[in-house]
């Protein structure tokens, strides 16, 4: 029971990281970023590459992966998404193209087998009979720190507040002198990095394969649909609910648990389409 609870918490934390990026690009860039799923696997695979192939130590591998991902996300936003002027259909198609492209590249380089991230921190803690692996604890702490950091950034750092302003009203933000383009690129870069971290954080538990990008995409969608588009608190709440379904739900209702998620979504879309804490997205 305790281990399932631990699983719930760590899983939900990774979901927060994953969905955070999607909600950022939704509110700031106003795009349903289909490529987000590929950020997830890219992060995982970059980490494995740095760790195993290049042979860098854990911390540096992590950092490098996040940085590369951040750059990829920012470039994508600036060079590919922004020139499209926000027109819905071409933007979505384009980002879908990016999703497939990244997935294709990853498969070409890494093959389509499952990859297993080697455990860096070995050892476990025994807490009242539940066994918790140190690795997962460390990663969970890293995730928590980043989430807290992000929250602090958005509320108290000037650039972060610019993020919020841009999300609320892009035109007004421009008038206030905010470099909206920079904000958009940065937000997608940060979102990509967070998604990658989510993959790294959870690869200790799950195998990674290129096709996980679809699952990651769907999880992100579920989380923000439930918790609310455009709201940080919503992402956290949504992530923990979906995490609950995927941990305890998987335990109790092994075969049907995904359908619980779907049912929740249907209910939410009927009752309150913008999600629990969501801000209705102005088109």
């Amino acid at each position: 029971m305790g281990s399932v609870a631990f699983h719930w918490v760590t899983l939900s934390l990774s979901y927060v990281l994953l969905a955070m990026g999607m909600t950022l690009s939704l509110s700031i860039s106003r795009i349903v970023n289909l490529a987000h799923g590929s950020f997830y696997i890219l992060g995982g695979f970059l980490f494995i590459m740095f760790l195993k192939t290049v042979g860098m130590p854990f911390g540096w591998s992590l950092l490098a992966s996040l940085v590369v991902l951040g750059i990829v996300g920012a470039l994508l936003e600036a060079k590919i998404y922004r020139p499209l002027g926000g027109v819905l259909a071409p933007s979505i198609i384009c980002m879908a193209g990016v999703l497939l492209t990244i997935e294709g590249i990853v498969v070409l380089i890494f093959g389509s087998d499952l990859w297993d991230v080697p455990s860096y921190f070995t050892g476990t803690i025994n807490l009242d009979g539940t066994v918790l692996s140190i690795e997962r604890i460390v990663m969970a702490i890293v995730a928590l720190l980043l989430i807290a950091g992000l929250y602090y950034f958005l509320s108290h750092v000037r650039l972060g507040k610019a993020f919020k302003a841009t999300a609320q009203d892009r035109e007004a933000a421009t008038l206030m002198g905010i470099n909206v383009g920079l904000v958009s690129s940065l937000s997608m870069g940060i979102g990509a990095a967070l998604a990658g971290l989510a993959a790294i954080q959870i690869t200790a538990v799950y195998y990674l394969s290129p096709f996980v990008s679809y699952a990651a995409l769907m999880t992100a969608f579920l989380v923000i649909s439930l918790g609310g588009m455009g709201s940080i608190l919503g992402v956290v709440v949504g992530a923990f609910i979906i995490g609950f379904v995927d941990s305890f739900g998987a335990l109790w209702v092994a075969t049907y648990y995904h359908l619980i998620g779907f049912a929740l979504i249907i209910i939410i879309f009927m009752v309150r389409p913008q999600g629990i804490f969501g801000v209705p997205i102005k088109d």
Binding site: I80, I93, C94, G97, E103, G104, V107, L108, I109, S112
Partner: peptide, 17 residues
């Protein structure tokens, strides 16, 4: 193996642009 999604993906982006 990886070429299919790659080509479709690149085509999608290229066409839009």
């Amino acid at each position: 193996s990886g070429l299919r999604p790659l080509i479709v993906g690149v085509l999608l982006v290229v066409i839009i642009f």
